[in-house]
Simulated assay, not measured.
Amino acid sequence: MEQRAEINGIPCLVMGNGAPRCIMYHGWGSRKEVLQFFGSILAQNGFTVYIPDAPHHGERGSFDYHSAEGKERFWDVILEMVEEYPQLAAGLPGSGPLFLVGSSMGGFAGSAMFARHRDVAGIVNLMGACAWEKAEEVFRRMSGRPAAEDEELARIREYDPLPLLKEQNRPMLLLHGSSDPVVPVEIQRFAYKELGQPEAVTFTEIPRIGHTTTLWMAEETVRWLKGHV
């Protein structure tokens, strides 16, 4: 049964009582409760799951996420998530291995957290991106905006997980729908190729699936996490 808790000031849902721990991050414009069912599946399989509200989401406020002005805050929110990760992680009880699971925006942020913190045992990235500069290029192309100038890319490049991940060979599961119209799979294809397709990284495209989490993804997440505890 889940319970609400504040961990170092960050509102979270907490469920399960297993030794392996897992932080789950939701997507843009969403909230922690949306991942409740997914989290319960992990909890039933022996994990303690923590699902925080992202900054400016859920209990932490809101804005018009889908307006032009709102979309301009996308990277700012992600960077806030990355910067507050140590605050959240420091408040987690227990000493078992810690994994990250991120959906969409949560996958973007989780990849940077994973790249920067070697004590994280592994990450499952669902519909997110490990290559931030490539993602910005694709997003601008999709919206008809001109290519970003160097000064616009400065913060993205500073936190982009791909350069750090290229120096590592750590466990990652990348699951992405082949028909995703929101975060096109080409971004993760690019990242996987740039990583050199290392043995520790599993990249799976799910045919005919868009920007959504399926039951198969949840099952594969459980299987993969259990194999890396």
Rank of each mutant, 00 (worst) to 15 (best):
L98F: 13
P163K: 09
S111W: 08
M172C: 09
A43M: 13
G18S: 14
P86I: 15
I209N: 02
G210C: 00
P163D: 04
G18M: 11
S179D: 12
H228G: 12
L165C: 00
L79E: 10
T212K: 09
F203R: 07
E2G: 00
P97Q: 12
G29T: 07
H66T: 04
L195S: 12
C130N: 10
A121S: 15
R73C: 08
G29I: 02
E6M: 02
G70Q: 10
G61V: 00
P97L: 13
P20I: 12
V182S: 11
H176I: 01
T204A: 03
M81I: 13
V185T: 07
L153S: 01
N125Q: 09
E137M: 14
A54L: 13
L92F: 04
A148Y: 01
A109V: 03
V77G: 01
G177Q: 08
W28A: 06
A148K: 03
I156F: 08
G91E: 12
R116P: 04
G27C: 04
G210H: 06
G61W: 05
V120W: 11
T221G: 13
E151W: 10
V120C: 12
A112S: 15
L92I: 14
A191H: 11
A109W: 08
E59I: 06
E136P: 05
I10W: 01
V101A: 00
G16K: 03
I209S: 06
K32A: 15
Q168C: 05
V120S: 09
G128T: 05
G58F: 04
L162C: 02
K193Q: 14
I78N: 05
V77F: 02
G102V: 00
E84P: 14
R118T: 13
G122P: 11
R140D: 04
L162Q: 05
L35W: 05
G39F: 09
P171R: 04
Y50T: 11
V120N: 14
E205I: 00
V101F: 02
L225W: 06
E194N: 03
E59H: 08
M24I: 14
P20A: 07
E80V: 01
E133Y: 04
Y192G: 00
G16N: 06
F99H: 04
Y85I: 14
N169M: 02
I51T: 04
K32Q: 15
G46A: 09
D64C: 08
A68W: 12
G27W: 01
D53F: 12
T202H: 10
F47S: 14
M1R: 08
V185F: 01
E137N: 08
A19R: 07
M24H: 06
P184K: 05
A90K: 15
Q197S: 08
P184V: 13
W216K: 01
G177A: 02
F47Y: 15
E149L: 07
G18N: 07
S67C: 05
A5V: 15
V101S: 03
F38P: 09
A54I: 15
E149I: 04
P198V: 15
V138N: 05
M142S: 06
E136G: 02
Y85F: 14
Q197P: 06
A68S: 09
A131I: 11
G94K: 04
K193P: 11
E152N: 10
S30V: 05
F190N: 02
